[in-house]
Simulated assay, not measured.
Amino acid sequence: MKTTTDTPADEEFAALCGRVWDVLAPARAGYLAGVSPHYDEVLHEVAQRTEHAGSLGKTDIAALVVWKRFSAQTRWVTELMSLPDTQVRAVTERVVTAVHDTTISRGEAARTGRGIIAELPGFRTGDALASAILTAAAPQRMAVYDSRVQHALDTLGLTLTPAPGRYGRYLQFLDDLLGHGGQLADGWTARDIDTALYWTGGSGNPPHPAAP
Results as ranks from 00 to 15, higher is better:
residue 57 G to P: 08
residue 57 G to Q: 06
residue 60 D to T: 12
residue 61 I to H: 02
residue 61 I to F: 11
residue 61 I to L: 14
residue 62 A to V: 12
residue 63 A to K: 14
residue 64 L to V: 07
residue 65 V to S: 01
residue 66 V to T: 08
residue 66 V to C: 12
residue 67 W to Y: 02
residue 67 W to V: 04
residue 67 W to R: 07
residue 68 K to Y: 00
residue 73 Q to A: 14
residue 74 T to D: 05
residue 74 T to S: 02
residue 75 R to D: 13
residue 76 W to F: 15
residue 81 M to K: 11
residue 82 S to T: 10
residue 83 L to G: 03
residue 84 P to A: 09
residue 86 T to Y: 09
residue 87 Q to F: 02
residue 88 V to T: 15
residue 91 V to M: 10
residue 93 E to Q: 15
residue 93 E to I: 00
residue 94 R to A: 14
residue 96 V to C: 15
residue 97 T to S: 14
residue 99 V to C: 12
residue 100 H to T: 07
residue 101 D to F: 13
residue 101 D to V: 11
residue 102 T to M: 05
residue 103 T to D: 14
residue 106 R to E: 07
residue 107 G to N: 05
residue 107 G to V: 04
residue 108 E to H: 01
residue 109 A to T: 08
residue 111 R to T: 00
residue 113 G to T: 02
residue 113 G to N: 09
residue 113 G to C: 03
residue 118 A to Y: 04
residue 118 A to P: 01
residue 119 E to R: 03
residue 121 P to M: 05
residue 122 G to V: 09
residue 123 F to T: 01
residue 123 F to I: 04
residue 123 F to E: 05
residue 124 R to M: 07
residue 124 R to D: 07
residue 124 R to K: 09
residue 124 R to L: 01
residue 126 G to S: 03
residue 126 G to I: 00
residue 128 A to Y: 02
residue 128 A to M: 03
residue 128 A to W: 06
residue 130 A to I: 11
residue 131 S to N: 11
residue 132 A to Y: 04
residue 132 A to R: 02
residue 132 A to V: 06
residue 132 A to P: 03
residue 132 A to T: 11
residue 133 I to N: 04
residue 134 L to Q: 02
residue 134 L to W: 13
residue 134 L to T: 01
residue 135 T to I: 00
residue 135 T to C: 05
residue 136 A to S: 08
residue 136 A to L: 06
residue 137 A to S: 15
residue 138 A to E: 02
residue 139 P to Y: 01
residue 140 Q to P: 05
residue 143 A to T: 02
residue 144 V to D: 05
residue 145 Y to S: 05
residue 146 D to H: 12
residue 146 D to F: 10
residue 146 D to I: 00
residue 149 V to P: 04
residue 150 Q to D: 15
residue 152 A to Y: 01
residue 153 L to P: 01
residue 154 D to Q: 08
residue 155 T to D: 15
residue 155 T to I: 11
residue 156 L to A: 08
residue 158 L to R: 00
residue 158 L to G: 03
residue 159 T to P: 02
residue 161 T to C: 05
residue 161 T to G: 10
residue 161 T to K: 02
residue 162 P to Q: 04
residue 163 A to C: 06
residue 163 A to D: 12
residue 165 G to A: 10
residue 166 R to V: 12
residue 170 Y to Q: 02
residue 172 Q to M: 13
residue 172 Q to D: 15
residue 175 D to C: 06
residue 175 D to H: 13
residue 177 L to M: 14
residue 179 G to F: 00
residue 180 H to S: 06
residue 180 H to Y: 11
residue 180 H to W: 14
residue 183 Q to Y: 03
residue 184 L to F: 06
residue 185 A to W: 04
residue 186 D to Y: 12
residue 186 D to S: 15
residue 186 D to I: 13
residue 187 G to P: 09
residue 188 W to N: 06
residue 188 W to C: 06
residue 188 W to T: 04
residue 191 R to E: 00
residue 192 D to P: 11
residue 192 D to M: 06
residue 193 I to M: 09
residue 193 I to S: 06
residue 195 T to K: 09
residue 196 A to Q: 00
residue 197 L to M: 13
residue 197 L to I: 07
residue 198 Y to P: 06
residue 199 W to P: 03
residue 202 G to V: 08
residue 203 S to L: 13
residue 203 S to I: 10
